[in-house]
């Protein structure tokens, strides 16, 4: 709902980046509380597993359906029923509206990862509603 609210009034790009930013702040703080009682993550993959399982379950009440990686810092998360868009349509009808609904989540992931020590670029695309794919690209320090 907040998503819909916020996207009413502004030019598209501006509002997407704002939503992303709101997501980032939320993810950053949220993960700090969520991982309070966790042991240190072993490695990057461990962090990703956390994102796919625990993080996703607390936010969206389900786990990520598929996680893939090229072991070079790119991860692809596939969610077959992404919660924010399940209510919208199962066809391509509103596909041009949907990126707005993904921006917050991209930020959420990016914020979470950043608090776990990983800088990243997160993008999302819709495969066929309501399934969508998040691509995470880890930025390594030079």
């Amino acid at each position: 709902e907040l998503l819909a609210q916020n996207s009413d009034n502004d030019s598209k790009e501006l509002c997407v980046s704002r939503l992303e930013h709101i997501g980032y702040n939320t993810g950053y703080r949220f993960v700090e509380k969520a991982t309070k009682e966790w042991q240190r993550f072993k490695d990057e993959l461990d962090v990703m597993k956390f994102i796919c399982k625990e993080f996703w379950s607390t936010v969206f009440k389900k786990q990520i359906d598929n996680l893939r990686t090229n072991h070079m810092g790119i991860y692809v998360l596939l969610d077959n029923r992404f919660r924010f868009i399940t209510q919208m349509s199962n066809s391509k009808q509103y596909v041009d509206q949907m990126p707005k609904y993904l921006a917050f989540t991209c930020g959420l992931i990016r914020g979470a990862l950043s608090n776990l020590g990983l800088n990243s670029i997160v993008t999302a695309e819709i495969v066929l509603p309501p399934s969508c794919r998040f691509q995470i690209q880890i930025q390594r320090q030079q």
């Binding site: 702040n25 939320t26 703080r29």
Partner: peptide
């Protein structure tokens, strides 16, 4: 409880924005 945290934090970020 956790998703309540998420809600609170999301609202906080929204206000901050």
């Amino acid at each position: 409880k956790v998703s309540c945290d998420l809600f609170t934090l999301t609202y906080g970020s929204l206000v901050a924005q």
